[in-house]
């Protein structure tokens, strides 16, 4: 997701300025709010589980898990899911998507599963993640939590919990940066 290192612009000038849409405090507040909404919607922790979509969805799911523990003194089980083998675009890649492990250390059947990802865009990742989830068991419900909803859906998919809706152009890129991986929490949009 890094930008092209070859710059066309003349020395001394810079390219289009990245647009900061969420700063560190915004990210933390948004995640805290989502945690509350999840608990409220599911009336507590009963049969609740979180599943993060690799890779950044996993970090966000861990944050939500910690947030819920802070509120409830108890935390829901957390799983991770790799959707590579469920993608519908394997033929169109320039490099091999890395195959990472899927790890769901609990039985999904009968649970309210909150699928967690960083950005909701076309909906194809979520579709693949739902296909993967149901191969592991039969959840009672699947809910979707995302930090950013940037629009441009190609499938009839809607998030249950959204950190922030950000209108974007289809060509723009949304970068979610998190302390655990990038040293700081922020969300920026680049052309």
């Amino acid at each position: 997701m890094t930008s092209d290192p070859i710059r066309n612009s003349a020395p001394g000038t810079t390219g289009p300025t990245p647009r900061l849409v969420l700063n560190g405090d915004d990210v933390r507040r948004a995640l805290a709010r989502i945690a509350h909404e999840i608990l409220e919607h599911n009336r507590g922790l009963n049969d609740l589980a979180l599943v993060g979509v690799r890779t950044r969805g996993v970090t966000i799911a861990q944050r939500l898990q910690a947030e819920i523990r802070r509120i409830e003194n108890e935390s829901p089980p957390l799983g991770t899911i790799d959707i590579t083998l469920y993608r519908d675009d394997l033929d169109h890649h320039l490099e091999h998507p890395e195959l990472r492990s899927t790890d769901i250390p609990f039985d999904l059947t009968g649970r309210h599963v909150v699928l967690v990802d960083d950005v909701l865009f076309t909906g194809r990742t979520v579709r693949a993640a739902m296909d993967a989830l149901v191969d592991f068991g039969r959840p009672r419900t699947i809910q979707l939590a995302v930090l950013i909803d940037r629009g441009h859906r190609e499938l009839p998919i809607k998030a249950d919990y959204v950190g922030k809706n950000i209108p974007t152009a289809p060509s723009e890129q949304v970068h979610v940066r998190l302390v655990e991986e990038d040293g700081a929490d922020e969300v920026v949009v680049t052309a």
């Binding site: 790799d82 590579t84 083998l85 469920y86 492990s101 149901v134 191969d135």
Partner: peptide, 20 residues
Amino acid sequence: VETAKSMKSISKRAIKKVPA
């Protein structure tokens, strides 16, 4: 071999099949 390790976990699931 690394890819095979990921594949091996599929064989341990209830539904031993992925749509890749």
